[in-house]
């Protein structure tokens, strides 16, 4: 599927059919992602929640493909679906969460959270609607190749990149220090 979409997104101006297909794919993916995300925050089973997160992250990776960001999609799959998911599942296991339904996962006053989230959503959707009402992605949208990404990272963004590596090292050491038994 990735191959197909990449084909669709790549050369020259996309045909109307191409846009059509892309749109259909997007809406299906988005619907799946939203439903999975909703289940993620409402499910009573921690392991299920992790699996729903898997679905959402995959959907986001697919969205990247639609947007022509192939390297981000690959990283999303490798880092999120590979590493972070495993970490979270380890977290679930190490904290001995109950496998199966658990009625005590949510706070009592869920409606406050719902209210805030809904309000936030309303504000954001409204302002996006006002702000980008009819802006379209360029019809001749070019996929952003991995080489372009690497050129950019290792020239313009070399300093943030190095800073990020230091941050990762610090996080690594920090995590070890925090979690080790002494």
């Amino acid at each position: 599927m990735i191959h197909l979409l990449a084909q669709e997104a790549s050369p020259g101006a996309m045909s109307d059919t191409g846009i059509w297909i892309s749109n259909i794919f997007f809406y299906v993916i988005a619907a799946v992602a939203v439903v999975a995300a909703l289940k993620l925050v409402t499910t009573a089973n921690v392991v299920h929640a992790a699996l729903y997160l898997l679905v959402v992250l995959s959907a986001v990776a697919a969205t990247y493909v639609i947007l022509g960001a192939e390297f981000a999609a690959a990283t999303q799959v490798l880092v999120y679906l590979g590493a972070i998911m495993v970490l979270l599942l380890f977290g679930v296991m190490l904290t001995r969460a109950r496998i199966g339904a658990d009625s005590d996962l949510d706070h009592e006053q869920r409606w406050i959270g719902g209210l805030v989230a809904a309000g936030l959503g309303a504000v954001m959707v409204y302002s996006l609607w006002e702000g980008f009402g009819s802006d379209k992605l360029p019809a001749d949208m070019q996929p952003q190749r991995t080489q372009m990404v690497s050129d950019e990272i290792f020239s313009t963004y070399i300093v943030p990149f190095e800073a990020l590596s230091v941050l990762l090292l610090a996080a690594l050491i920090g995590a070890v220090v925090v979690a080790r038994r002494d």
């Binding site: 995300a37 959503g121 009819s134």
Partner: peptide
Amino acid sequence: MFINQFLIFAAVLFCIG
């Protein structure tokens, strides 16, 4: 494709988060 379809999708995910 509208840019908004992606942005609103992201906003919804954000609020769910």
